[in-house]
Design a protein around this nucleic acid. Structure first.
Length: 394
RNA sequence: GCUGGAGUCGUCUAGUGGCUAUGACAGCAGACUGUAAAUCUGCCGGAUUAAGUUCCAUCGUUGGUUCGAGUCCAACCUCCAGCA
């Protein structure tokens, strides 16, 4: 049984959005968009799918019961954060991340590579990274090998190779991060092989590995990186160091990358999905899974998705808005409460408000993904996207 | 009635002679992308402007001292505590 099965793939058909131009020489007519299934030891993920960001082994503000109700297909935990606490050994002792959290469905783990970008005290050298713990100032050393070992202890179904994330308009900075990512891949692969055999001997389930494509917004670097990664012995690919489709080049870069990566392996767009537009464009140009902290963080900070765009529940105009945000939304918030009530919960800083808002935003992106998947199978993606975008972005 | 204390932007609060009167909260808006984020930023006396423009007001009230007063003095008002 293969790791990834494509059920349906298609070219954009009835789409009236402008297609970004790319500089790749790859076939222009190759279908990129697809619906498929990723098979893991903890069940299947129907793609395209939005993976819940569970950095510290929880989707902030939600319980497993919430996650089940809103049909979260998978979650993504973070190796750096779990390294600080409670430690991979403890998670291994608990029987792995699924047992520890009692989450029954698939889990991804991110390598810690993103923290090179997000943490101010990260010092990157040719062999790895030295972090200063944001919790207590401890020195934390991570290398491809240590990240792989920690990820196997955590025991998620899908691991990310330890890469260097960066965000710059400077070609040389992005090139350096890309080259380092390439240079680190062999150590990732060797450690992964070793631990894979160990797991086989212990009759433990397989944990898969994705390699991460780098290159920022530079087509030449992306092409080089995708070419470098495409034949590597990995189960799938992460696409890193992209942040928003508000930057016009981003969609073209995703397209270019996926035109080079092998069709038969899944692609995860790392960290993008704060804007519904990101999900549409990511799917259109060949990505299968997505994760993003946006929906949950926005929810905690009072921003909610709606069909007609984002709203800020703390705004005074919602004080006496005695209607739900969207009565067609199946979530607990929309089915049970008015925006006036949610406004009150936010103004009084009651934790329930953040929980309800998080349930809504996660439901919004997961339902949107489900609709997108269905539309690929029905050949109606173009009209779904056009209608959604017209309504959401006015 | 007497004695003592206190009145500062919606609230609390800093400020005892020196130029634009603190800070916090509340209020109003904005940001958030492989989570150092239940966080961060801006505004927050009134009017006016294209504008970071211009004008006016302001520390209970009134008057005074002084080049200069939230700050010192006097009277009054209000509140608090104690004594009657």
């Amino acid at each position: 049984m293969s790791f990834f099965t494509i059920k349906k793939q298609s070219l954009e058909t009835d789409l009236d959005t402008e297609i970004p131009q790319t500089t790749t020489t790859a076939s222009q007519k190759r279908p990129l968009m697809r619906a498929g299934i990723i098979k893991t030891a903890h069940g299947e993920i129907e793609t395209p799918a939005f993976v819940g960001a569970a950095t510290c082994a929880t989707v902030k503000a939600l319980t497993n019961r919430h996650l089940e109700t809103i049909k979260t297909p998978a979650i993504l935990v973070n190796t750096y954060h779990l390294l600080l606490t409670p430690g991979p050994e403890l998670i291994a002792q608990a029987g792995g991340i699924n047992k520890f959290t009692n989450w029954q469905k698939p889990t991804f783990s991110d390598s810690g590579g993103f923290q090179m970008l997000s943490l101010p005290d990260a010092k990157v050298d040719s062999d790895g990274v030295t972090f200063k713990s944001h919790r207590n100032g401890d020195t934390i050393r991570m290398t491809p090998e240590s990240s792989m070992r920690a990820q196997w202890q955590i025991g998620a179904d899908i691991h990310m190779a330890f890469d260097q994330a960066a965000d710059s308009r400077d070609h040389s900075i992005m090139k350096q991060a890309m080259l380092r990512t390439h240079a680190w891949l062999p150590e990732n692969l060797e450690t992964h092989e070793l631990l894979k055999h160990q797991a086989e001997r212990d009759s433990k389930p397989y944990q898969s590995l994705y390699a991460v494509v780098q290159g920022g917004l530079f087509p030449d670097l992306r092409q080089t990186s995708a070419e470098f990664m495409k034949d590597q012995p990995v189960d799938g690919f992460g696409i890193g160091s992209l942040y928003t489709t508000e930057t016009p080049e981003t969609a073209a870069i995703i397209k270019l990358t996926n035109e080079i990566l092998p069709v038969e392996k899944p692609r995860h767009l790392l960290g993008m999905g704060s804007e519904p537009r990101d999900l549409f464009l990511g799917v259109l140009y060949g990505c299968d899974t997505f994760d993003c902290v946006g929906p949950t963080r926005l929810a905690r900070n009072g921003a909610l998705y709606s069909k007609t765009g984002r709203i800020n529940i703390k705004n005074a105009k919602y004080r006496d808005y005695f209607a739900p945000l969207d009565e067609t939304c199946p979530c607990e918030l929309c089915q049970n409460h008015t925006l006036a009530y949610l406004h009150h919960l936010f103004k009084t800083d009651e934790i329930t408000g953040k929980i309800l808002a998080t349930i809504h935003n996660e439901t919004f992106v997961i339902d949107l993904m489900q609709k997108i998947r269905q539309s690929i199978q029905d050949d109606t993606f173009g009209s779904l996207m056009t209608n959604f975008m017209n309504s959401y972005y006015n």
